[in-house]
Structure formats: structure tokens, C-alpha cells
Write a protein that binds this DNA or RNA. Structure first.
Lengths: 210, 210
DNA sequence: CGCCTTATGACACTCCGTGTCATTATGTAA
DNA sequence: TTACATAATGACACGGAGTGTCATAAGGCG
């Protein structure tokens, strides 16, 4: 019964190796979206253009939105790792009034930006997201793991439970908006946008470090 | 050609008067959602239970999510009005360092909370939203008008264009999280949650009032 | 009485997402 | 070589969201 419909290509040493390249498939999908529009491109169109079956497509991308949002995962992952490391390292006790908490969030955001393999492709994805409310809405789900990690980081830094929730929400909202602003323009470096966005945050009521 | 599929019941003095009460329909829908679950309740079920046709249901609620989010509109409306008034009144030039901008945002949020007709029903709606990512995602669209009004308010107060965007995103994210926190608990008054949530915001670089 | 609008009912359609089932392909381990 | 495990295909079906059309009935108003 543990048939385990796990994602393909994850540490399996037995069985037939995967032949489908998810990145290539997503690339085909993005091209079709750009050519024919997002809504006017069906999952079947994408499967056909990628030369794979519809079911196989759904196996790698459970929803149409994942074809666009999937490429953002590396950013979330890299950013989350930085927060994870900072969290286990314990309170920072920096010299600034907030104990270097904002600096930690900033470092995480910048790490995310550094993890992007291809800036122009990512810009394309983000523009697609910006143009389609249906896709932009997904930011709430797509960034959920990020929210959770940021929350744990803040808690470890001595921020109140409630304040951590609010700060996370504001953090994600502001950084997402920064990415949208960057995508709308032509600047190469997204970091200045992120840094400015974090300027609207404030860390309240920090409990003294243990 | 201006057949204009306008929403029913808007200043029409001629023609057959509307007999369907949207609030009652939404009430039926919320009851069904609570009894059978959101996903396990189809639009046809709702139409049948409400004693109306499926097409009529779609006329008042273009999407299933609107049955839940529709009731939040009064909040957004009241909150937006406060921002609108504050905007046309021009820069506040308050005594605080941010020129009373945060106070304006706080007033708007509180005004929204005061505009709720039935707290318990609203709590039910918000809990439904919190439990279903598909619904929570919609916050980005549902609060879009609010975002726009807050942006204009901030611009009128001398905030940089880019900073206004980031502050709006953080503002909406934090207040939405505040509503979620309130809905999860049993406290009667949502205002303290909103006030604390706004504590994570900071207004950067205010251009001196004209 | 005619006009205008609301509302219904029926029918059809596209597309998303899920499910099943049988079958073939292709690697690794016994 | 054989057995096993997994990847991938193809076909077929299904529920449900959301859109569209069309004809028809109901109920105020000038």
C-alpha cells in the first residue's frame, strides 16, 4: 500500500529513469503562453507541443499555474535556507535597535535573488504573473513555505508570536511587490528593489535575547 | 449595442424589479459550505437550495469564491472611503515623524472593522477563507481596490511612488493576517489585532508637504 | 397596450483536474 | 537472464467551473 506516488526522479536508484525534463516542458509552456496567451493555451496544447502525454504533464505540474510558479521555487528555497541557518544560529544580538532582525530578512531576500539561474526567463514568468490576477493570487500559496520559515526565524529571534505573523505577512507582501516592480522594468539587478521594499518594515517589541 | 450587462438592481426604475436577495443566497451558500464542505458543494447545489436557477446564481455571483468574499465588500468600501476623504484633504502634517500617515491607515482599517454588520457571520466567512488556500489566495484580487486607494492616499501624503507600492503591499498583507488571527480566535473586537498588525509598518522617505 | 428588465429552463461547450486500467519501455539488483 | 520497480503512454470517463445561446414567462412602468 505504500505505492507512494512520489515525485519522479527523487533518489530512486531502481526502476526506469525519468526521460522527461521538467525545465524543458516549462520552457515550451512559457513559449506557448507568450505566443497565444495564457488562457488560450490548454494543458493539452502544452502536452502536445512538448511531445508528452497529458497525464505525464500533470504528473510533473499538478496545475497549470505550476508551470509558471514552479520556476520560482529555487528562489524560495535559497531564501529559506538562509533563514533556516540564521534561525538555528540563535538570536543575533546585533548593534541595531531591532537586533539585526531586519538585516536577516534582507539577507534572505538577497540570497533568493542570487539563486536565479536565468534573470530574463524569471522576468518573463513574473510578468506573466503580474498580467494575470489568477496567477498573482497564487503568491499566497506559492510563498507559504517561505512564510513559515520566516515565522520560525522571527520567533527564534525573540519576536512575539502575533507580531511574527504580521511581520511575515508584511515581509512577503513587500518583497513580492518588489519582484513585480523589478519585472515591470528593465533593470538587471532586483536587489535594490528588494532593499527598498524592506524599508517599509519595522520590528516591534523584541523580547531580550536569552 | 450598449446592451450593458450591468449588475441587477442598480438605479433601474423600469422593468421587472429584482426578486432575488443576494444576501439570502450567500447565506444559503455559507450554510451548505458549513454542512457539506466548500469543495463538496457545487454551484448547482447552491442554486437548488436557494430556489433559483444556476444562471441566475452566476449573475449575482460570477464565481464560487464570490459567495464567500462578496460579504467582505462593505469592509473594503468603508475603509476605502476613509482613505478617499483623507486623500482629498491633502497632507496631514501631523506631529509624528511620519506626518500622521500611519494614523491614517489605522483609521481606515478601524473604519472597515466598524462597517461589519454581523461579526459572527463575517468570522465564519473568514474562517472558511483561512481553511481553504484556494479562497485565501483570492485576497490579492479581493483587496485590489483597497490597494489602489491606499496607494493614492500615500502618494497624496508625499510618499515616493515606489515606497507607496511597497507600503501598500505590506499594509494589506498585515491587515489581512490580522483578520485571519481574529477569525481564528473568539475575541469580539478585531480592532486590537489590526492595531498591532500596523505596528510592523514604517513610513520611509516622506517628501515634505507642498 | 407595449416596453423594459428579471428570471427561468434547457442545451451545449471548453477546459481544469482526477481517476482507472492495461501496456510498454528501461533501468538496477538478485 | 530473470525478476522487480519505476516511467511513460493511451484511452476513456467523470465531476465541476464557467461561458454561451435562445426561447419564454413574469412583473413593473410610461
Amino acid at each position: 500500500m505504500p505505492s507512494d506516488h512520489t515525485k519522479p526522479g527523487v533518489g530512486r536508484s531502481t526502476g526506469r529513469p525519468a526521460t522527461i525534463d521538467p525545465d524543458a516542458v516549462a520552457g515550451v509552456a512559457l513559449r506557448l503562453f507568450a505566443e497565444n496567451g495564457y488562457e488560450r493555451t490548454s494543458m493539452e496544447d502544452i502536452a502536445r507541443a512538448a511531445g508528452i502525454g497529458r497525464k505525464s504533464l500533470y504528473r510533473y505540474f499538478p496545475s497549470k499555474a505550476d508551470l509558471v510558479w514552479g520556476g520560482i521555487e529555487p528562489v524560495v528555497e535559497a531564501s529559506g535556507q538562509v533563514l533556516e541557518n540564521a534561525r538555528t544560529a540563535g538570536p543575533t544580538d546585533g548593534d541595531t535597535s531591532d537586533g539585526g532582525i531586519l538585516a536577516g530578512l534582507r539577507a534572505a531576500a538577497i540570497a533568493g535573488a542570487s539563486a536565479i539561474p536565468d534573470l530574463s526567463v524569471t522576468r518573463g514568468r513574473l510578468r506573466l504573473i503580474a498580467e494575470h490576477p489568477e496567477l498573482a493570487s497564487r503568491s499566497y500559496d506559492a510563498l507559504a513555505p517561505q512564510r513559515e520559515r520566516a515565522r520560525h526565524y522571527l520567533l527564534a529571534q525573540g519576536v512575539t508570536e502575533s507580531a511574527a505573523g504580521y511581520l511575515c505577512a508584511a515581509y512577503l507582501g513587500a518583497t513580492f511587490e518588489a519582484w513585480m516592480q523589478w519585472a515591470a522594468g528593465t533593470d538587471a539587478d532586483p536587489v535594490p528593489y528588494l532593499v527598498e521594499a524592506l524599508g517599509v518594515l519595522r520590528v516591534p517589541t523584541v523580547r531580550p535575547g536569552r
